[in-house]
């Protein structure tokens, strides 16, 4: 991996452009986006659906290479990395919180967390202790052995947040984490996300179309037609 030292240890997007298709079908999902998130900072990205929010997370989360521009995740320049290197970056440096939790149906809450170290190799005693600590932090110690179908929507999302923190991510990305939740639970999750971001010093980006959830954010940026403002 081509690693270069950068001015920030969080997340940095520099003039990132992402295009799909060619010619008449060319879609510019991201248009020269520049965004820097410091460790422990919680940034909310707001915009209507189709504005490019998920593309932003895909690029920031090393799921896809931008067409142009640079992405740095915790000192590592992503450009030019091969698929296997991107995968390693994802499982070691990035935490994702997906819409509606996105948990694996056959795994208990604890196993959802333990999957992360297993993807990198072996599960150690330290990993188990960390999983239990994180489940406690999100208030699910009593439900650690339940599978997703035995949990409520809010509980599933808490497990998803705990899983995202499992690998001590430098960058924490949340994709509409409150989409499937009612107002009260949505506020709880966002508050938890903000608290964990601050406490664990993760550069955190949450995209949402819900403007009611922004008071927990340190900074709010708006997105429209692939541009940040």
């Amino acid at each position: 991996m081509t690693a270069t030292t950068a001015t920030t240890t969080g997340l940095a997007l520099e003039q990132v452009t992402l295009e799909y298709g060619t010619g008449d079908t060319l879609v510019t999902a991201l248009d020269e986006v520049t965004l820097t998130v410091e460790p422990g900072e919680f940034v909310a990205v707001v915009g209507p659906s189709g504005s490019g929010k998920s593309s932003l997370l895909a690029v920031a989360g090393a799921l896809i290479h931008p067409t142009r521009g640079q992405v740095r995740i915790a000192d590592v320049t992503v450009s030019g990395a091969k698929a296997a290197e991107l995968a390693r970056l994802r499982r070691t440096r990035i935490g994702y919180v997906f819409q509606s939790g996105n948990l694996l149906a056959s795994l208990t809450a604890r196993d959802q967390l333990l999957l992360m170290p297993h993807l990198s190799g072996r599960i150690t005693a330290e990993d188990r202790a960390r999983a239990d600590e994180l489940l406690e932090a999100v208030g699910l110690t009593a439900k650690a052995d339940r599978r997703p179908h035995e949990l409520s929507g809010g509980e599933r999302q808490r497990v998803g947040l705990a899983r995202a923190l499992m690998n001590r991510p430098a960058v924490l990305l949340a994709d509409e984490p409150t989409a499937a939740l009612d107002r009260r639970r949505a506020r709880e999750i966002v508050a938890l996300l903000a608290a964990q971001a601050h406490e664990r010093k993760a550069a955190t980006v949450m995209v949402t179309h819900d403007t009611d959830l922004l008071e927990a954010a340190d900074r709010v940026v708006h997105m429209r037609d692939g541009k940040l403002s």
Partner: peptide, 15 residues
């Protein structure tokens, strides 16, 4: 969907 999720979490195809 679960395979896509594991891959997004950084699981390799080989895994």
């Amino acid at each position: 969907d679960e395979i896509a999720l594991v891959r997004a979490l950084g699981g390799s195809a080989g895994y």
